[in-house]
Every structure is written in C-alpha cells, then in structure tokens.
Design a protein around this nucleic acid. Sequence first.
RNA 1: GGACGUGUAGCUCAGCGGGAGAGCACCUCGUUGACAUCGAGGGGGUCACAGGUUCAAUCCCUGUCACGUCCA
Length: 890
Amino acid sequence: MLDKTFDPKTAEPRLYEAWEKSGGFAPTDDPNAEPFSIVIPPPNVTGSLHIGHALNNTLQDVLIRFERMRGKAALWLPGTDHAGIATQMVVERQLALSGNLSRRDLGRDDFVAKVWEWKAQSGGTIVNQLKRLGASCDWSRERFTLDEGLSAAVRKVFVKLHKEKLIYRDKRLVNWDPHFQTAISDLEVEQREVDGHYWHFAYPLEDGSGEIVVATTRPETMLADTAVAVHPSDERYKAVVGKAVRLPIVGRPIPIIADEYPDPEKGSGAVKITPAHDFNDFMVGKRHNLPVINIFDDFARINDNAPPEYRGLDRFEARKKVVEAFEALGLLREIEKTRHTVPHGDRSGVVVEPYLTDQWYVAADVLAKPAIKAVEEGDTVFVPKNWEKTYFEWMRNIQPWCVSRQLWWGHRIPAWYGPDGKAFVEETEAEAQKKADEHYGRPAPLKQDEDVLDTWFSSGLWPFSTLGWPEKTGDLARFYPTNTLITGFDIIFFWVARMMMQGIHFTGEVPFKRVFINALVRDAEGKKMSKSKGNVMDPLELVDEYGADALRFTLTAMSGQARDIKLSRQRIEGYRNFGTKLWNATRFCQMNGCARAEGFDPAAVRAPLNRWIVGETQRTAAAVTEALADCGFADAAEGLYRFIWNQFCDWYVELAKPLLSGADAAAKAETQATAAWVLDVILKLLHPVMPFITEELWEKTADLGAPRPQGGFLMTAAWPDLPAALIDPAADAEVALIVETITEGRSVRQGLNVPPSAQPPLLVVEASAEQRRVLEASAALVQRLLRVAEVRFVDAAPAGSIPYVVAGATLALPVADFIDIAAERTRLTKEVAALTADIDRTAKKLANPDFVGRAPEEVVEENRERLAEAGAAKAKLEEALTRLGGAAGA
RNA sequence: GGACGUGUAGCUCAGCGGGAGAGCACCUCGUUGACAUCGAGGGGGUCACAGGUUCAAUCCCUGUCACGUCCA
C-alpha cells in the first residue's frame, strides 16, 4: 500500500542514481533507432543553477525523455563553458578578498593554475544541480570547452579561417574595458541611458578673427582633438573652413574641416573630432587623413600624449580638470543638461572606451551569408518563428567580430610572432616554428600571441566539437546535425548565430534543425537575472521545498511562447498538489484491486464508463504527443493536468466506485483492468514532465497484475501510441448525461441551500428512451454523487419540485420543504431572463438574411438548435415559476 | 530614432473569427473509506481605447495610449 503522500526528498536522489546506474541516459545502440540529439547550452563551469537554467534544462529534459520513450536514439549531450571573462572575474575577486594579490602580481601561469583550482573545486556544482532537477543527460559524454579535444578544434578552426583570410589582424578602434583591460565585442557592450551634460567650449581661431563653439559630453577627449568639423552646406562656417583653431590647454593648432558627419541642426553645428576616442570621429579622421592621438593608457588614465599636469589622471578626474581649465580661460560658453546613452561593459559595469589597438577579427559578414540562407530556406527553423526576424536583422547588418581578448583564462591564440613581428598562425608551435624557419631561412625565435579567444568563439563550435570534430567519429556521423536547440533569446546573437556561421562553414551542414527559444525568467521588477547583478533566484531551494517534479511542471506549464516568466510559489505548490492527487488516485486504484490484466485490450471493454475513459485517454495521448513533438510544452502540461485531475480523478474514479464495489464480477474485473491500463498510460505521458513521481509510482505498481510488456524503468518504457478508434461517441454522450445530471443537480441543491443531509428523490420528468435507459442504469451513481434517495420516473413534476434541464431532458428535485421559496423564485426569474436575452439575440441573428445566407450551414444550424433549446428550457422554467407562485401563495 | 512583444477576472496567464476560460485568491457548504497537499457550489471581466473589414471581432486591419525588451 502506498503512503499518503510522495516524499521527493528521499525518492528523487534514489531514483536519479538508479537511472544513472542503469545507463539509460545514453542513447540506445540500436542501429535502427532514429537519432535525436540535443546539445546543452553549456553553463559557466563555475556557475550555479539559477531559475533560467532550471527552465531551459527542464524543457530539454522533457523533450529528450519524450523522444527516448518514443524509441529514438536520444542523446542529450551535457557540458560546461570556461566562460573566459566571467570566470576570470570571479577568481580575481577572490584573490582580492583573500591575498590582495592581483593577477598581474601572480603572473600568468600561477593565475591560470588558480583558475583551474577554482574550477576543480566548484565545477561540479552546476552538474550536481542539474541532476537534482532530474536532467537525463548522458554524463559519459560530458565536455568542457577547454578539454583537449575541443581546444584542438578551436585551433583548427582559427588556423583554417586565417588561411582563408576570414580571420585577420587589424588596428582599429575597439570597445575597451578599462576594468579588465581587454577588448570586448560589440555584443558585450551595454548601452545605458544616463544623465550627463553638454559642455560648450569655445576654440579660438588661430588668426584671432573669432572663435568656434563645439559641444561635447566628454570634455577630457579634447586633449586628443585633431580637428573641428562642420557640414559643407553650413553657411555659418563657409568662411572658416580651411582655417585653424588653436586647441586650448594643449596649444596645438588643428584644422577646421568640412564633412558630412556634423548635423547642422544640432548645437552650434560644429563638432570636435577625436579620432582616437570616438567611432564616428575615427571615420572622419580616416576621410581627412587626420592624425590619431591616443591620450589613454590601458586603465583609461591620461598618458604622456597630454600636457604634463594631466598625466596619470583618471579619465573622470581629467574631465573635471578640463572643464575647470576652460572656465578659468573664459572659454566655457554653456553647460547643458542632457540624457544620453553611454556604453558600459556588460560584465564589469564600467564605461567602455573606444580604444585604438591591434586585435584579431573574424570576417563575420562572409560567414553570415550561408547562415542567413539556411534559415531563409528552412534548413533551420526557429520556434516561435518570429525570432527569425531578430536573427535576420542582426545577421544582415553584422560587423567584424573582434575575437581576441587580453585575458589569461581561455584558448590562447595560435599565432606566433617572428623577430620582425610577422605572425605565423598554425595549429602547433612546432608547425609555426617550421614555417618561420623556412620564411627567415634560419632558426628564428618566436613568441606566442599573449591573447586568448572570445569565449563565444569556442562555444560557437559546441554542436560539433563536442561530438568529436574534427575527427570523423561515430557520434558525429550519427548525431550531427543535432535536432533541436533550446535556449534563451538573450543569446541568439552571442551563441546561436555564431554556431550557425561556424557550423555551416566547417561541417557544411546546419548545426541544428530547430531552435526553440524559451522565455526569459525575470526578477520581480522585470529585470533580466544575471550573476553580475546578483538578483538570481535559487531553484534548488524550490526543489527542496516542493520537489523537482513540482518545479518542473510549473516551469513547463508557464513556458508559453515569447513571454517573461514570473515565478510564484503558489503556483509551484499547486502543481505539487497535482502530483499528490495522482499519487492518491493510484493509491485508490491499488486499494481496489486495480491490476493489469493479461492481454487487456482497451478496444474491447464494454462498460460505457470504461469505453469513455479509454477514448479520453486516447485523445489525451494524441494531444500530448503532438504538443511535445512541436515544442508545445505548456500545451502538453495543460492537457495532462486537465485529463488527470478533472477527468480521471474527478469523474472516472468517482463513477467507477460502484462498479468496483458492486456485485457484477465481470464489470468489476473490467473496471479494475481498465483503471490499471489508464494509469499506466498516464504515468508514461506525464513522465517527461514529472519523471520522479511517475517513476516511483511505476515501480510501486509493478507487481500488480500482469507484468508490463517491457519491464524495467518507466524512463525507457515505450510511449503510448493509441488508435483513434478507441473513441466511442455513444459512450461519451452517455457519460456526459450522467455528469451533467449530477453537476446541474448539485448546482440546484447548493444554490437553494438544500442541506447536504436531505435526500430527496431525483425525478425524471421528460426524457428520451435512451436517456431513460442511461439514467436508470446509472441510478446508483446518481444517488451517491447527487445525494438523492432514488431516481424515479414520473409523468409530471409535482408541485413544489425544482426542475432543471439537461440535454433536453427535464429533471426535478422535490425539495420545497427544505428551501426558501422566495430565493428559488429569484433564481428561476434570473435564469428565465438570461434565456430570454439569449433567445432574443439568437432570433434576431436568424432573422437576418445576410447571416442565414452567408454564415456556414453548421453555424446557422447551431443557432437554430440553440434557439429551440433555449425556448424549451424557458418554457419549462416558466411553468415551474407559475407552480411555485401558487405554492408560495398557499 | 528603428524593431519586436505585451495590455483578457483581485493576481499569474490560456484562448485568437461564431455568446469568454484555467490556476491561485475570495465567499458558502462539506471529514460519504484515495486524496483537507481534498471535495461540492458560487461571486467576479463593455477581453486598453478609437476607427475599419465582416452576416459575425477579444481574435483580422489601421491609428492612439500604456508597459516591456532588443538594436541604434
């Protein structure tokens, strides 16, 4: 006998261990099984599971469990990402907290050793958390982006792209993060709107004939100005173009140039040009061959290119000082408040500087073309489809991708420099040396590039590098391209797009056929959760409190498309209760001898109740299967919830009670077998979403009745595939009549406050022969569930009885003695009024020749029926009202 | 400034051309042998606003307003 409730705390770890030991997480070896593969979006190796991971991984697990049960060779390949900048940041912070040693003090090798230490210490955390969630990943294939195999793939890709001239070194402005002292890509820059000022500075003309006013939000950059620009059509400045101004503070003469860039409508129409510290100005400088003067060091402090009194100052200190100097010089014309966007590093949170450096770039525009085409042609589809727009938008406007980072934790760039700075890009140092020696005609000393690659460079290879590429492995042949990628929209650019570009370029095939974009879990204020913001929620706490199944079901049910998810504890609690409900229904079945029968054939059951539930089971199985096959996770959860609770528990179990305790041995046996069969199907259908409780129930009911066809774990049981022929409309109608008779009758009773203890008869006043037969046959049920003494067939409703109408039949409850007549009169009057309104509307509609002429025949027919039914019901209720009036008067 | 998305019951959300649904919350009743992590019943919504298309609009189109996210 089952306990009263399921205990997830003890059962979940036990079941997970049993699954893992069984080897059931690995894809089947059966060569005939269709492969189905998912690669996990690799979480940061030193991270911990937040609620977004929980959602994302729950959905992947639902899908992989579903496909595994459908008999596919289902592979969910797990692993973690070294997460260059994020991990380095964590370790640096730890160093600062403990020893005060900066990474520079420590030196590269020792620092990297420290990171590996930290990885060893905390790297298992997230994996264990995924296990708590029930994730059925094939851990034997677990990968890490810095594994030797994956690192070899990274080198091969880099070298090949270099040889194809799709990776090149270039000196240009990058987004420079002064906190980490590294370049970052455009995507890692966050534009934040902040309050700021326009400072209007006057630059005196060198010939003393006047001044020109420029406005800037960044006064300190004036130290690096090399021109002032005006629009060529701007009449105000026609005369001064070609002249020079003398740059205040610095004293350098700089030219006034004409360029399309300045907007004459804005400010004075003249702008200062600082090619070294502004992306737009850099372009202007290129067009006019302006000198590029850099005044910052790697920390964004002022360097020696500025006047001595500014050197060494932090950029914000320098800003103050420049403004003060202008004021002192009498050249500060105005300070205007403004709100403008300022670029910040998404990890460091500090203001990013455009900074002139040598970096490695990927010619993303070339790689993007086939990646765009693949989505256009449907080789890869996005679900929901509108995310394709986002993908196209970015891919069609893609910029060169800066892939070098001035960090220490990551894949070191496979480039070696000769004495004259020439780069030799090869997969190994030996190969580079060989090439260098050939080039120089003598042994030459080489020095490897100090930089590492952007983390996304290696994660972009994830779908194939994890399967063994560039080796031609069996896994690669079998599981690539992967079937479905499930991820958040926040990394469509960072990750999905890069995988598409690199996957197609290196394997000739798309990396996945389908991309399911799941919603983003946000915090209470609707803000994106991130570790750097510190607003993460702990799903493990929720697992502890409610069990993994409850959290999983909640996330699945709320995973509707393109929405933010705000998690509520009440909701999780509700789904925990749902699990308990199923648990207790099983318990009931167990107590009533429900056991699988040898050779049970659901199509052959005879009792209408059993025929009905068999049909409903088929409908549910079909709906859930279709939903899961199309990533309709929420629909699947919804359908399961309704079927299990509102149909199986609320009605089937209740209606089956008389059969299970009745004298008809054949009906009893059939019901026991049917219930066991339905439960088996339920456990299978629910397993992908709630794997633990279903597996436990599967195990606990294993010894009841005939052995299950495939024995073993529910996790690897065959998914139900039921024929639609199991649906029997006659049985459906029969059960519907009984259910409505009870529901409507209860409504009458409770609406009139008939005491629960009162047991009037149920009078069947008017009914078809078939309805009479059904009601007679189900009299015991109706008695029990409607709490009536008997079901009696009469010719007319006696005075003081309360009628109600179900499917055209008139039923009545003689409860006048128990009720408040005035209240009943009110109730009937209200109902008659509602029916009258409905009749009026419907009649009006049917009187409209346009409606009758144009609407589909079935809609017109439906309305005719509605009108007839409402008319009949109204007549019956009015009659009752009349009778009641007499009774009340008496 | 551009793109996308969202406004439906007190809350969280389904539905998306033929008289609006669920869960939670709320009110009333109920321990009848699976389940109080429960059962029964009930109240509660001019489906953001304004136009248009249609026999018919919560649903489609246009505009407005509000909120959110992404990209400049």
